[in-house]
């Protein structure tokens, strides 16, 4: 019988400091046992429990795309016991990975549509996964226009610079990276994510939006999309709640009758409009 509580052993293959405040570190894990990588078959939008023996587990969105074989990537904010411990671990250390958990973004039902992807701060992780996946030569033709809006407070707090600066050179994705205030050496956009979204969002016909970011960004971006004519069915969001099991059993992450871990974390705004705002 498969034991969904048992992590796959993984080795930290690469780690890097992601942001200037050093609060975010990116980890690439390689599976210790051959065969475990196939068992950990995931899609963009899913998450996993990162397990540190003796410390505990944390649920983190998967930042790599399943098309990037050989390792799985996560970006971890230093917040509590497990994440702080992880920030002191080294390449080569052994820990655990449990999942994949949750449902991915509905990439199949989005086929044929234009897509605007809106990210704020380090919530960009599963959206990086989505964009890398969509830009694969075998996947790109399935989608119409792709627009990417990404904001952070300062240039130094933007994640995955190598990725989005490459995407900026392509002509099959419109990339709008913005920071909150003018900063020395920054020649890109300046302004909050909702304002940039208002400026660049494509017309709502045959278009879906995927949003992931801090609550304040979501709060002010939703009305912009509503005003632009996006229906709640076409606004897709990813929720977070405190979690333990990730399997819809331990109870704490529910929003109404739905468990964020098992039934989410991806919901449409029309689904969320029927549920208590307990997230």
């Amino acid at each position: 019988m498969h034991n969904p509580f048992l992590p796959y052993p993984v080795r930290i293959a690469m780690l890097r400091v992601e942001t200037e405040d050093k609060n975010l570190r990116t980890f690439k894990f390689e599976f210790v046992n051959p065969g475990d990588e196939e068992k950990f078959a995931y899609m963009p939008g899913q998450f996993a429990e990162l397990s540190v023996p003796g410390q505990g587990e944390i649920p983190i969105g998967i930042a790599s795309s399943p098309t990037e074989k050989g390792s799985v990537m996560f970006t971890v904010n230093r917040v509590g016991q497990v994440s702080s411990y992880m920030h002191n671990m080294k390449e080569g250390d052994i820990m655990g990975l449990r999942g994949p958990l949750g449902h991915p973004y509905p990439l199949d039902t989005l086929e044929g549509k234009n897509i605007i992807i809106i990210a704020g701060g380090f919530a960009v992780t599963t959206l990086r996964s989505t964009i890398v996946w969509m830009l694969q030569p075998e996947n790109r033709p399935k989608y119409g226009r792709i627009t990417f809006v990404y904001g952070a407070r300062t240039p130094g707090l933007l994640c995955f610079k190598d990725d989005w600066s490459e995407w900026q050179k392509r002509d099959d994705i419109d990339v709008h990276v913005t920071i909150d205030r003018e900063a020395p050496g920054w020649s890109g956009k300046v302004g909050f994510v909702p304002a940039v979204t208002k400026e660049v969002c494509p017309p709502p016909e045959n278009t879906a939006a995927i949003i992931c970011g801090p609550p304040v960004m979501i709060k002010f971006t939703q009305p912009v999309l509503a005003e632009a004519g996006y229906s709640p069915d076409n606004i897709i969001m990813s929720l977070e709640n405190r979690m333990k099991c990730g399997l819809g059993i331990c109870g704490r992450c529910n929003v109404g009758p739905e468990y964020v871990c098992k039934d989410g974390p991806v919901f449409t705004l029309s689904q969320l409009n029927q549920l208590p705002r307990e997230y």
Binding site: F5, V52, P53, G54, Q55, G56, C245, C250, G251, R252
Partner: peptide
Amino acid sequence: HCFDIQDEQNDKGGVRMRNWD
């Protein structure tokens, strides 16, 4: 049926346990 999951350890090793929550 809610539970919490916690790790406990000493010098030699550790356990992961669940407790009613």
